[in-house]
């Protein structure tokens, strides 16, 4: 009973740190060269995310080329609406009815990985938990009082954490790819450019030396 003051102080401190500090994000370290993971992530996106979230900057054709999916396979296995290969990813449900339903329009996710970062995405998607305080009995560790439905509830509760984590990692990989499709090409090109410039430094240095020899004498 003497220590109730301390309890109050402690709880204020704890809640202050919880409010102040960013929630601890789980590191995901996606491999941008791993097209297999991106392909599996794309499948998940098409089945679970695309219903509500468009990705208006991402064309199916580009995905087919980058992730080496055969155009025929893309049409039969991935595209699940009337879109053609040249179209970008449109959401199935109209966004105004969704915003009435959930209180906010589901955002376009083309650039979400560059806005929030891969660790945020991974932590958010694995961060759903049961919370009896809320009307739909779930909540999220990263985004408190989240409006988005717990879409992957079944997977998270029926799969082992390891398998579920791998699944979300694949989805995150795809979203990282989608936010900047050129990235893996950019990084592989970079080494040639830098190598060229490093080699260029040698004649440039020798040229300077040969001219300046006259001056130092």
């Amino acid at each position: 009973m003497i220590n109730w003051r301390w309890a109050v102080v402690l709880s204020i401190l704890v809640s202050a740190t919880c409010l102040g500090a960013e929630p601890n994000l789980r590191k995901v370290n996606v491999d941008i060269q791993d097209t297999g993971a991106q392909k599996r992530g794309f499948k998940i996106y098409m089945e679970y995310c695309k219903g509500c979230h468009s990705a208006k900057f991402m064309r199916y054709e580009r995905i087919a080329t980058d992730l080496s999916i055969d155009p025929e396979e893309m049409r039969s296995q991935y595209i699940n609406d009337s879109s053609s290969l040249h179209d970008s990813i449109r959401s199935t449900a109209p966004s105004d009815s969704l915003s009435k339903l959930f209180g906010a329009a589901p955002p376009d996710l083309s650039l979400w990985a560059r806005y929030r970062g891969e660790d945020w995405l991974y932590s958010y998607l694995t961060g759903f938990y049961f919370d009896s305080e809320r009307s739909f009995s779930y909540n999220n560790k990263v985004l408190h009082n989240v409006n988005m439905p717990w879409v992957l509830n079944y997977q998270q509760t029926h799969e082992t954490p390891k398998i579920f984590g791998e699944r979300i990692r694949d989805l995150t990989s795809f979203m990282v790819y989608m936010a900047e499709p050129i990235r893996s090409y950019r990084e592989s090109m970079g080494q040639y450019v830098l190598l060229f410039l490093a080699l260029l430094l040698i004649p440039v240095y020798l040229l300077k030396q040969s001219y300046w020899r006259e001056i130092s004498q």
Binding site: L194, L197, V204
Partner: peptide
């Protein structure tokens, strides 16, 4: 000829940032 050296070093840093 002297300034070509810093220009190339600068380009290495500049393109290093652009690509990575």
């Amino acid at each position: 000829v002297h300034d070509l050296i810093p220009i190339v070093v600068f380009l290495i840093l500049f393109f290093g940032v652009i690509f990575y």
